[in-house]
């Protein structure tokens, strides 16, 4: 008798699949220059309060040109002891004390450069797929980390004025929120227009998620 139906060969029926939330189109993860000021989807960077599925969309820090004033100051500090040849106002000191004065001066210069650099590297603004985060280190021991959910953002504007800012394309992005921190200010960040555009895209995406019921 011909086999009409063999249950062992029958493929198992698939369980009705749950609607899968499409992933947000955040772009590719990419390697970045460690000193970059505008990093899209940075690879290998995370922050303290990051949630498991949260992804950093943009990492922003002040434009590198804003470091110029302290860099000039640092160069002057490095060169300053050379002027002692022309203005010998430490000559009343014994040589040992003069030597110590110069060494202490260079140590202060080193720590000045290091502190300014640390401040630039770690004072960052993050835009993730869920919220905006502002990390500020005000001094050696005082830090402030504020964040706000994307859906609580009410208004985003940017300010860009002046010759230097126009030439180097950087400015301030002001974000008004309905959260505890009413205003977030991303100061002197590169490409402020694209940052505003990205935040607006994320707001629209967040609204769409709400409508479709895929809010995390």
């Amino acid at each position: 008798m011909p086999v009409v139906y063999n249950s062992s060969k029958a493929k198992p029926k698939k369980a009705p699949s749950q609607p899968v939330a499409p992933k947000k189109n955040l772009g590719k993860k990419r390697k970045h220059h460690p000193f970059a000021s505008f990093i899209k989807r940075p690879e290998g960077i995370s922050f303290e309060t990051q949630e498991k599925k949260e992804e950093i969309v943009l990492l922003l820090r002040r434009h590198w040109i804003t470091n110029l004033p302290w860099l000039v100051g640092a160069v002057l500090m490095v060169l300053a002891p050379l002027f002692l040849k022309f203005f010998p106002f430490l000559d009343f000191l014994p040589w040992r004390y003069r030597l110590m004065a110069v060494i202490i001066w260079y140590m202060l210069t080193l720590v000045f450069i290091f502190e300014k650099f640390l401040s630039w590297v770690f004072n960052v603004n993050l835009i993730t797929d869920e919220r905006i985060v502002d990390i500020d280190f005000y001094s050696l021991i005082y830090k402030e980390i504020s964040h706000c959910k994307i859906d609580r953002i009410q208004d985003v504007t940017y300010k860009m004025g002046g010759v230097i800012r126009t030439i180097f394309d950087y400015g301030d992005v002001v974000i008004q929120t309905a959260g505890e921190e009413p205003v977030f200010e991303f100061k002197a960040i590169p490409k402020p227009a694209s940052v505003v555009r990205k935040i607006n895209d994320l707001i629209v995406e967040e609204e769409r998620e709400k409508i479709e019921g895929r809010v995390r």
Partner: peptide, 10 residues
Amino acid sequence: LMRRVLNGVL
């Protein structure tokens, strides 16, 4: 502390 807040930067 800074590295703990922002991990993966230098």
